[in-house]
Simulated assay, not measured.
Amino acid sequence: MEKRRIAVVSAGLSVPSSTRLLADRLAAATVAALRRRGVEADVEVVELREHARDLADDLVTGFANAGLRPALEAVTGADGIIAVTPIFSASYSGLFKTFFDVVDKDALTGKPVLMGATAGTARHSLALEHALRPLFAYLRAVVAPTGVFAASEDWGGAGEASHGLAARIERAAEELAELVATRPAARAADPFADAPSFEALLGGV
């Protein structure tokens, strides 16, 4: 069975978090959809709230510290990304934007992304289209057509059924799985690939 890596970026601030809950639901549905295509997926979750200070350090120094590097490598080395943010003031959270600000601007080129967002009211649902989609378009990612938004009334029981959250999750996961399964597996970038050999250095090249 083929193998792929899925990175899940969750920008939720509370514990427990509806943002993380949506991210987990999207990840589980994507793993199942990939398995139906003969692909086994490894999922790594990046909780941005754990890296808030690391991200601030990166902004002022220009370098990712030891705490942030594994999170960045998980995202840039993944075959597909599930990115979920809470919506504040009709847009993504500052923590979410800061993370993608410090990701190398070319690292997501051609990489499949599934967008998700949560908020207390459905009035914020268009933030997926006017905020998140342009962000990932700028980064030249390949964004799944269906973004998944979940307001408070979408969760649980009759509310989830009547608002179609489960169906949206399944549709978006199928789209991401198709993008990931039909794309060659990502290879981890070697940061020393362009470094000269010792022989070249000793030879004065």
Rank of each mutant, 00 (worst) to 15 (best):
L126S: 13
L139M: 09
I82P: 03
I81C: 05
A66R: 11
V60K: 10
A83P: 01
A122P: 06
G116H: 03
G94T: 08
V60H: 13
V46S: 05
L68G: 00
L114P: 01
G164I: 11
F88M: 09
G62V: 12
V148E: 00
D104K: 08
I81G: 01
V113K: 01
I169C: 06
K111P: 03
A144L: 07
E73V: 10
G156I: 02
E129S: 13
G157A: 13
G77E: 15
L72M: 12
L48V: 08
H130P: 04
S125L: 10
L114D: 05
F99C: 08
H163T: 12
I82D: 00
S89M: 15
P134N: 10
D42S: 14
S91P: 04
V60S: 15
S93V: 06
G62T: 10
R133W: 15
E40G: 11
I87F: 06
P70M: 09
V148F: 05
R49S: 11
A107W: 05
L165M: 11
L135H: 00
G110I: 09
H124M: 08
A117D: 08
G156P: 02
A172S: 05
T121L: 10
L95V: 12
E50A: 15
A52T: 09
G94K: 04
L126T: 14
F149P: 00
V148S: 02
D104M: 07
K97N: 14
R133G: 10
W155D: 02
P134M: 15
